[in-house]
Amino acid sequence: MKFKMMYSFLNADLQLIEKELEAAIEADSTVLREASLHLLQSGGKRIRPVFVLLGAKFGNYDIHVVKHVAATLELIHTASLVHDDVVDDADLRRGSATIKSKWDNRVAMYTGDFIFARALEMMAVIESPLAHQILADTMVELCLGEIEQIKDKYNFEQNWRIYFRRIKRKTALLIASSCQLGAISAGVDEGIHEKLFKFGYYVGMSYQITDDILDFTASEEELGKPAGSDLIQGNITLPVLIAMEDPKLKKLIETVREDTPKDEMSHIINAIKTSGAIEQAARISDMYLEKAFTELKGLPAIKARKTLSDIAKNIGKRKF
């Protein structure tokens, strides 16, 4: 089943959220409006709003309340991408020019800050202090994850625990919070929204590990960047950590720098791909998915539960 088909019953609500997003980026500055709109229309999957809506389905679902949370999560994700493109000095995202390349870093910084502010302004419609605490903690953790990623670049001595903490902060927490905040905005019991948080967390971990695997296995065309880009940039991901358990491979991998010649890099990537590290990383990703399914079992058997399960399966199967 195609990804979007899984939640087609949410289409009307998702359209409402699109309108909220467009309204959220209304600004006096034409450049700011253009830049934000350029970003919103560049084809994101809106996976976070989907998780928010599905989480809310476990409680008193009121789209006119939950839409604020859904739009907030998407705006936070969007703003962080704008700033990420400055961090990564990236010219392209999803095939179109980034704000920093279409305008410049300064415009990207202002646009990101503007969108972050709009996100929180929208979230302020929700009065629940718990919801704000969860979102605020997530935002801080997200930054810490990004800072850690820079700190640990080319650190070949880092252990698995550091990697897992980093991907938790960088990716998993925002998905986990999306599921949980949707539920909280719909007034569900603590036992249920905590399960939804754990479900989102496990799915997010699996999602990031799969992403890190695909960096080695997908084609340049599918990735929009050369295979092994993460490693070239010094980001030590799970397949690399597993491969480095072999002392010979570790010695080889430790030579990687940004200016490592292409043919040497191909040799190293090939060595990682044939070491069994990819398969082992995939098993760990699957293990996280299994944990996500276990959490779902403890939730009421409503349609949203089946959809969450389908989405999780799709994440496990994705090829790029």
Binding site: S80, V86, Q133, A136, V140, L144, E146, I150
Partner: peptide
């Protein structure tokens, strides 16, 4: 430059966290 970007986001998160905690 990378850390300037992230630091700003971090301080921004701290203001939200402070107000959310109360």
């Amino acid at each position: 430059r990378q850390l300037q970007v992230l630091a700003g986001d971090y301080y921004s998160g701290l203001y939200y966290q402070g107000l959310a905690s109360v």
